[in-house]
């Protein structure tokens, strides 16, 4: 999933400055002001969370804030819709387990 560098119609994508953030503690780069989900996608991250009961992986589905499939724990806030949350420098983005944890509590 790389970024598009040359496009026949879109001359340039409206991007902020390059910033660092962390995904499960790992440092990644993205552009300030783009959705967290876009930055994760560009870094090849597909799994945003695991479901509560069956521990199934979920990722981006609608990308416009409707479906809530892409929610993660962002800066400590669980159930954050990463597709409509804009990236800031130093953001702490974590895979969400179940309804809001960053790991399954003893199930």
């Amino acid at each position: 999933m790389e970024r598009i560098t040359k496009h026949p119609i879109i001359e340039s994508f409206d991007k902020g400055r390059k910033v660092a953030f962390t995904f499960d503690g790992k440092t990644m780069e993205g552009f300030e002001g783009e959705p967290v989900a876009a930055a994760l996608k560009a870094n090849g991250v597909m799994i945003h969370r695991y479901t509560e009961k069956r521990h199934e992986p979920r990722g981006i589905f609608c990308a416009i804030g409707r479906c809530t499939d892409c929610v993660m724990v962002v800066d400590g806030v669980p159930n954050t819709r990463t597709c409509v949350t804009l990236l800031k420098e130093g953001m702490d983005v974590r895979t969400q387990y179940g309804k809001g944890g960053t790991e399954y509590e003893k199930i």
Partner: peptide
Amino acid sequence: MMNLYGVR
């Protein structure tokens, strides 16, 4: 993803 944010 692709037309707004330039990510495939």
